[in-house]
């Protein structure tokens, strides 16, 4: 079953993607088909199964709370599309 265009637009907003009308139509079909396929998972019972989020049983790996050098500002900014006075520059927000 295809997704509605409204559903596609809602997900596109969450994902911050400005899709063209063509893309919306195509994605409504394609996502529908993939989700249909994903529904085959519902044929297996999983009521008492613990979800497996991570293969390794590691939790909260901490390092010692010691000050370490961080990346120099110039390097951090080196790949930014727009920089001014040592800051990232973006369009007006307010």
């Amino acid at each position: 079953m295809a997704l509605t265009i409204k559903e596609v637009e809602h997900v596109a907003l969450l994902a911050r993607l400005s899709l063209s009308e063509d893309e919306k139509v195509k994605l409504s079909q394609q996502l529908g088909a993939i989700l249909n396929y994903a529904d085959t998972l519902n044929t297996i019972p999983t009521d008492n199964v613990e979800p497996l989020t991570h293969i390794l049983s590691v939790h909260n790996v901490f390092r010692a709370d010691e000050v370490q050098p961080s990346m120099p500002r110039e390097e951090m900014l080196a790949n930014a599309p727009l920089v001014e006075a040592g800051y990232y520059k973006v369009p007006k927000i307010m």
């Binding site: 998972l41 519902n42 999983t46 979800p51 497996l52 293969i55």
Partner: peptide, 10 residues
């Protein structure tokens, strides 16, 4: 659901 199935696969 997918994460639960992932457990069964493992």
């Amino acid at each position: 659901k997918a994460l639960k199935v992932r457990r069964l696969i493992a």
